[in-house]
């Protein structure tokens, strides 16, 4: 169905690329096996961002991660934005393209956040139509990422693993399993994260995300974890990664650190820890 000649992401640690790390990464990449960029930051016509990306992609496999396509939105996908994604994927020829199970645009207004949706037959159909369109326009298979949830919808008739499995089955897309999101959602909505993983279609997972979270509380004093990407990965999330990898085998594992970004050695140490987790499992 899609071009399979393109080299996939390696089953190694990667990091979310931050421009302040450019020189350090080129100098001492350490455990780094690949990089991920946010697509929307590389949609300018030129300048330093594009030049750095060209140099990085000469040296490392690159994953393009979209944060603005609003695949879960009610309206049709923004054709201008799809064209920008296609332009980026055409010249960069990344190892992977991924987006989110979320919406972020409504009637032309963009909210700059990943917003939640209920899991129903109607939303399932619309999301599958959107993914079909993305895969057709980009000419490649995409990965869809599970969200971090702070609330649930009374209208939902599917659980999240089943919903994602059905999307993957209908569209042929792969899945991006964010293990921190699984942990955050499980704590916030009161389910067992391991049971979630056990129900998840791991054979469809083409990439794993890890990131830090913050702790807060809801109106009833129950824990409310916030997916902040602003700290080291928490120990229970590392343990959950081990649980995933033992079942899935090696996968590309990404460290996301987007706020209060540390110096490169701190981020590299997180990548190295992911490398050790990967080394414990065999294909």
């Amino acid at each position: 169905m899609f071009d399979s000649a393109r080299a996939p992401l390696p089953p190694k640690p990667g990091v979310g690329y931050k421009p302040q790390h450019y020189a350090a990464i080129m100098e001492s990449p350490g455990a780094l096996g690949w990089l991920e960029i946010h697509a929307e930051n590389y949609m300018g016509a030129g300048g330093r961002p594009i030049a750095q990306l060209r140099h990085l992609s000469d040296r490392f496999p690159v994953s393009v991660h979209g944060v603005g396509l609003s695949i879960g939105g009610e309206g049709r996908l923004d054709p201008d934005h799809l064209a920008r994604l296609r332009h980026l994927c055409d010249w960069l020829n990344p190892a992977s393209f991924s987006e989110h199970l979320a919406w972020s645009t409504h009637e032309g207004a963009f909210f700059n956040d990943l917003l939640p949706l209920p899991y129903t037959d109607a939303t399932l159909t619309r999301i599958c139509d959107h993914i079909d369109e993305v895969q057709e326009v980009l000419g490649r298979r995409m990965l869809l990422e599970n969200p971090s949830s702070y609330l649930a919808f009374a209208d939902s008739t599917w659980d999240e693993p089943g919903f994602l499995a059905e999307i993957a089955r209908r569209t042929g897309c792969g899945l991006l399993l964010d293990v921190n999101n699984v942990f955050v959602s499980a704590m916030n909505l009161g389910y067992d994260p391991r049971a979630f993983i056990d129900a998840f279609p791991l054979q469809a997972v083409g990439e794993i995300h890890l990131g830090g979270h913050d702790e807060d509380h809801d109106d009833h004093g129950a824990p409310l974890l916030i997916d902040s990407h602003g700290a080291e990965v928490a120990d229970p999330v590392w343990a959950l990664l081990d649980h995933v990898l033992a079942k899935s085998g090696p996968r590309p594992v990404l460290i996301e650190w987007d706020t209060d970004v540390p110096d490169w050695p701190v981020l590299e140490a997180e990548a190295a820890r992911a490398g050790r987790a990967l080394a414990q499992v065999t294909a």
């Binding site: 909210f111 700059n112 956040d113 917003l115 939640p116 209920p118 702070y150 609330l151 649930a152 919808f153 009374a154 209208d155 916030n188 909505l189 009161g190 389910y191 809801d218 109106d219 009833h220 129950a222 409310l224 916030i226």
Partner: peptide
């Protein structure tokens, strides 16, 4: 209406996480 915590109670300040994310971002 229709958004809840994991136990079916109204979402309350859980909704504020999204409000806050949108405004702060």
């Amino acid at each position: 209406d229709g958004v809840t915590d994991g136990a079916g109670r109204p979402a309350g300040r859980r909704f504020d996480v999204y409000r806050n994310n949108v405004a702060v971002s």
